[in-house]
């Protein structure tokens, strides 16, 4: 395996200092969080940074906290493992903890950060669909001060976001949500572990009464379009309808029609589309069945409907 070319590493203690380092040293600098994408880019893809600015000494970027209004704030440097085992997240949004727990291995998740997953802007990023159905906002520190944007409009294309050079992603905010919200994330990949999503589907919904009439629903897809996307046509199929096999099937068809997958080493576009149909249906039906807290991983992929 190739070794990195020389570069310097700075370890600023504040966001301000990190941004200044970036401005002062000019082009060719990269921010470093867990390094699980950056080190791979350097070792495998021939990226040659001139310098690297490590964000891990900036205390304000880490941690997970719940505000009095019920919103959750996840520091960009919160690791995937922290999100996976966080009590408050696994109690309120078990499908979000699960999506973090689907990333790589424990070794990877001890380093990989939620901010890095978002900033890297891979279409298959596992936490993104779950955050999209929670209508998360992201805060960035820019030259013109702090900015907040909905996660949905953060991505511009594979590897491209609204962030400009020197901008730092600081936190992810999950707005207050009903305690009755139910959700699901399905990472579809033939290997159970250590593989990227061929298709990712997240669902969050609110239903009325015992008949499972859908009051509100959000569906998001990963790995099947240039940026992770909301499947609004599929959502429209379900609103104010009873959720059952038939309506879930139709929502799955709608999702399959509105995504724009590509063929690559992992799967053909046609296969991905088909898997969007199947897994959207499955995710919807799993979500209405609910789940008792955070299920052990073996139970995660079971069909529960």
């Amino acid at each position: 395996m190739k070794r990195p070319e020389p570069f310097e590493i700075f370890q600023p203690a504040s966001i301000q200092e990190a941004r200044e380092l970036h401005i002062h040293h000019g082009p060719g600098g990269y921010f470093l969080a867990g390094g699980t994408d950056l080190a791979i880019a350097i070792k495998e893809k021939g990226l040659v940074p001139r310098y690297v600015v490590d964000l891990k000494r900036i205390g304000s970027l880490s941690g997970i906290r719940e505000n009095a209004d019920g919103s959750l704030v996840l520091g960009a440097l919160a690791t995937m493992r922290e999100v996976e085992i966080s009590r408050v997240i696994s109690r309120r949004f078990p499908f979000l903890s699960q999506s973090a727990g689907e990333v790589g291995s424990i070794q990877i998740r001890n380093r990989a950060t939620i901010g890095g997953n978002i900033a890297n802007a891979t279409p298959s990023a596992d936490v993104v669909p779950a955050l999209l159905v929670l209508e998360a906002q992201v805060t960035t520190s820019t030259q013109n001060g702090e900015k907040q944007v909905p996660l949905e409009s953060f991505f511009l294309g594979p590897g491209k976001t609204v962030m400009e050079r020197g901008d730092i992603l600081t936190e992810i905010i999950i707005p207050p949500a009903s305690a009755n919200l139910r959700g699901e994330y399905i990472k579809f990949s033939p290997r159970e572990m250590m593989d990227l999503a061929y298709v990712g589907v997240a669902v969050a919904l609110l239903t009325d009464g015992d008949e499972n009439v859908c009051r509100e629903v959000r569906i998001a897809l990963g790995a099947v379009s240039p940026v992770p996307m909301r499947a609004r046509k599929a959502e429209a199929v379900l609103v104010n309808r009873v959720i059952n096999e038939e309506s879930a099937e139709r929502a799955g068809e709608a999702a399959a029609s509105e995504c724009t997958p590509i063929s690559d080493v992992r799967a053909s576009a046609a296969y991905r589309r088909h898997m969007v149909r199947v897994n959207t249906k499955r995710a919807i039906l799993n979500a209405v069945c609910g789940r008792p807290g955070n299920l052990p991983w073996v139970a995660r992929r079971e069909r529960r409907y």
Binding site: E8, L32, G35, A39, D54, K56, N110, R111
Partner: peptide, 14 residues
């Protein structure tokens, strides 16, 4: 905590 040492840079380790 267990991590992959092939993805950690020495300059991060102070």
């Amino acid at each position: 905590k267990p991590v992959n040492s092939c993805l950690v840079f020495s300059g991060e380790l102070d």
